[in-house]
Nucleic acid binder design. Structure first.
Lengths: 103, 103
DNA sequence: TCCACGTGTAAGAAAAAGCTTACATGTGAT
DNA sequence: ATCACATGTAAGCTTTTTCTTACACGTGGA
């Protein structure tokens, strides 16, 4: 597992809102506006969290044009499986580029 | 898995410094001051990160009195094993108390 | 035309996290 | 006594994250 991707996944999941989002989308697709209502959070806020989750490949998005012609974005949890132990983390660390920007 | 503890573990691991700390302590105990030097970070900073990791039960600490009588704190990665999938997260969510303080 | 509903995004406030510097204690060796 | 090394912790700055409000566009139906 790549260090940067692991970090992206963990920091994305290490947030209560995003944990709930992933849980809600486990095996069930839903469109953004409706999801925001279900979770009781604003749509811009959900949009922000979804970006983080998509960037970490934990959630996939599909922009569909409904029969009525309206654009609707469906999101769903990606089928990820991360096994975390001190050892798996240690193996990922060498590929962690992070380090403050070397300008 | 308990929701709050899972969140604590994920938010603790979702940080480059702490990921390195856990990796460095995988199967190898070390005392704080020396660890700070190895990682190239200040001791107060390491102290702060260790607190977070201990609180999440990802690292264990042992305060020992060395032969010479000096107090030395040894830390080590706890033998944790977290399996993360959309489903395991979904199962943990019901026990997530988080919610803004209900006063 | 205007409303309801979907999308995205920018700007700024508020809160949390990260980090440094400085101070405090205690021990053993010089 | 002073130095070297271990510990902890408080104060304050800086940066990032989180969240709200407000605006933009496009569609279908009354």
């Amino acid at each position: 597992m790549n260090g940067d991707r692991l970090l992206a996944a963990l920091s994305a999941l290490g947030n209560p809102q995003r944990m709930r989002i992933v849980a809600t989308l486990a095996g069930r697709r839903q469109y953004v506006s409706q999801l925001a209502r279900e979770l009781g959070i604003s749509r811009p806020l959900l949009h922000m969290h979804l970006q983080r989750l998509e960037a970490a490949d934990l959630v996939t998005a599909d922009l569909e044009i409904s029969d009525s012609g309206k654009a609707v974005k469906y999101v769903e949890a990606a089928p990820f499986a991360l096994h975390l132990t001190p050892e798996t983390i240690a193996r990922a660390i060498p590929t962690l580029t992070e380090q403050k920007e070397q300008k």
